[in-house]
Amino acid sequence: MKHLLSIEDMNVQDAIGILDTATELSRINDGQMKKLPTLRGRTVVNLFAEDSTRTRISFEAAAKRLSADVINFSAKGSSISKGESLKDTAMTLQAIGADAVVIRHSASGAAQRLADNQWMSGAVINAGDGTHEHPSQALLDAFTIRKHLGKGSGDLQGLHVAIVGDILHSRVARSNVLLLALLGAKVTLVAPPTLLPIGIDKWPCTVSYDFDSVLPYVDAVMMLRVQQERMTELFFPNAREYSRYYGLNSERMKSLKPASLIMHPGPMNRGLEISAEVADSARSVITEQVSNGVTVRMAILYVLLAGAPLDVGSI
């Protein structure tokens, strides 16, 4: 792998390779979180053209634990907010000597544009592009599910995962559907019809409008954040009604199987898509997702950066 742009262009071996690497890294990390010298002398640039403190600090922590030099390049106050083009930004990063660029961008396909053009030579890691994909989030979600419910290493065969909420605008959902299906899990998307894209029948998953009919059968339920602005865009009548049909509250939680996991990529709207009791319950692995995020991102950086550059040839 040279870049991590989307789950769509990933195969099972790539995915399992990253998850296995993360598993080994988590064993080391379970002791003391010490710094590893692995990426000493490498430069990782966090290019965040869209605000996301959580993902940025996760990638930053991952890079720093592997001893890479980290440069944060955020939208606010940077040349991006002054209208600099993606091309000029990329060429600047090339001149700085970035070995990898972690890019978060509001435009779908921005990471692929960065990788496809000859503007820079480093690895490109998609940290969320528009409403397209968020592959590192899907990998950390799969890692979390595998750790709790998987049969050691390997895939997620036989598991059933529900993803609930604004599928239409969710890059997390897109990446998760593809990755979970790739790893052999069954995926059911649950949302009001307005928040499902046209053409979803071609996705490797099933779709339901009825949360309650799905809940008793799943091994993990992944709640998606509902953006406040969706309410003004006519997707559903109001927050109360959304919450009534698609929110996960303690009443609904009762119908889950005992070992089922509750997940959320964050940041949560407590009281809207998830109630506080559920978010803080014993079966919620939401904070664990955050710590697994660092480990999985270390694995991604390791796989992309630790070896010789791919174009140099192998021994």
Binding site: E24, L25, I28, Y302, A306, G307, A308, L310, S314, I315
Partner: peptide, 12 residues
């Protein structure tokens, strides 16, 4: 590390 293709991490 940089002189060879990426290696997988073995268990510790």
């Amino acid at each position: 590390l940089r002189l060879r293709p990426p290696r997988s991490i073995m268990p510790t």
